[in-house]
Computed example of a mutant assay.
Amino acid sequence: MPRTLSSTKTRAALRISARISLELLLILVMAAVVLWALGQMWSVIWPLVVGLLLTTLTWPLARFLRGCGWAPALAASVVTLLFLLVATGIAALIAVPVASQSGELADGVAEGIERVREWAAGPPLNIDDAQIAQATDTAAARLQSSAGSLVTAVVAGVSTVVDGVITAVLALFLMFFFLKDGPRFLPWLAHQLPGRLATDIPAVAARSWDTLGAFVRSQALVGLLDAILIGLGLWALGVPLVLPLAVLTFISAFIPVVGALFAGVVAVLIALVFNGPTDALIALAIIVVVQQLEGNVFQPMIQSRGLGLHAAVVLLAVTLGSSLAGIVGSLLAVPVAALIAVVWNYLREQLSHPPQEPESNERHAGDAVVS
């Protein structure tokens, strides 16, 4: 006989589904409210995030100095000054060679533009000088007509640079205070929270700190691999300014998508200017291969091991973060996913049943045999 649906079970299933849907809806609303609040406080949160990431990078040295008996303020001051010196040295590694070859670079740019013009004048494009002049006049007219929007773009760019400088200064000061007073934060937090929160939140915070450190170390390792492989390829081609380009590649690894694109464009342009189109195409192929290896092999593998996330989760997190918040979202996607995993694992540990002790099982079995 055909089986019929039970009305009682159907109503129970619908009630359970409705309750679960309502709970999920409330969770989504709460998440939207939290994201909105974070967006309103972003001018404070962003320097805080940058300061925390810098602290995870410099904390091992500060911890070593504190272990040697240095006062916390002295250790934090020395590490902060060393960080500034290293950052200045990295900037010098990029700026000094470029400035010393600025004349050759300018001549090479002019020569490269002339090569492009000559190539465009030949087949298959066959663009003559009159067409180039006409295109130049058209571009100039468009620039004049859009002068207002250009001024707005320039003002927005200047504002972005100023905001970046302010963020960097605030992050540097926050890094100093984190290095100085960081170990006292969790005990202080435990005394401020009531009940079980005094244990749970400091425990989650400690695990989150370890996770952020693993993220920064893995990102630095990925950037180092990129810099070495691309630097070796450019050196083999005889491209000048290899060291500044390698340093720029390493730094750009911390800025997803745009950083790698910018470093690759600079390297290809320099190869085109100094070595010609053939070497520029080879350099482009090297950069594309290395960046594909980074995005699809190195970064997922290294970060999945360091953060306890599957490689597919890393890829999906970066994709979702970039679609939601652009560059900042792609930068923070992996650590945010790792922190969510930390919180979930801790909740699962607290909500799971404790394992039964073997001794008690053996004792009950013995009692049953005796009885």
Rank of each mutant, 00 (worst) to 15 (best):
P2E: 14
S6N: 10
A13E: 10
R15N: 08
I16R: 12
L28E: 09
L38D: 03
G39M: 09
G39R: 11
G39I: 04
V44F: 02
V44L: 13
W46N: 12
P47A: 08
L54D: 00
F64S: 12
L65W: 06
G67S: 10
G67Q: 07
C68W: 07
A71S: 12
A71M: 02
A73N: 04
L74K: 11
A76C: 07
T80G: 12
L81Y: 06
L82G: 08
L84W: 03
V86K: 02
I90S: 05
A91P: 06
I94L: 10
V96R: 10
V96H: 08
S100P: 00
Q101C: 04
E104P: 01
D107L: 15
V109S: 11
G112H: 04
G112T: 11
V116M: 07
G122F: 07
P123S: 10
P124H: 03
A130Y: 09
A133N: 10
A139Y: 00
A141D: 15
L143N: 13
S145R: 15
A147C: 06
A153I: 10
A156V: 07
A156T: 13
A156M: 11
G157E: 11
G157T: 12
S159K: 15
S159C: 01
G164F: 09
V169A: 14
L172Q: 06
F178Q: 03
L179Y: 02
K180G: 01
P183G: 09
P183Q: 04
W188F: 11
V204P: 01
R207L: 12
W209R: 00
T211D: 00
L212F: 15
L212R: 00
L224K: 01
A227M: 01
A227G: 01
L237H: 05
G238F: 10
P240Q: 06
L245R: 05
A246M: 06
L248D: 02
F250L: 15
F250A: 13
F250Y: 14
S252F: 05
P256F: 03
P256I: 08
L261V: 09
N275Y: 00
D279E: 14
L281H: 00
I282D: 01
I287A: 02
Q291D: 13
L293N: 11
G295V: 07
N296I: 10
Q299D: 02
M301F: 06
I302K: 00
R305F: 05
G306Y: 02
L307T: 08
G308S: 07
L309F: 10
A311T: 09
A312Y: 02
A312L: 15
T319R: 11
S322N: 12
S322V: 13
S330D: 12
S330H: 08
V334S: 05
A338D: 03
L339P: 04
W344C: 00
R348D: 11
H353L: 07
P355C: 04
P358T: 08
N361F: 14
A365I: 14
V369R: 15
S371T: 14
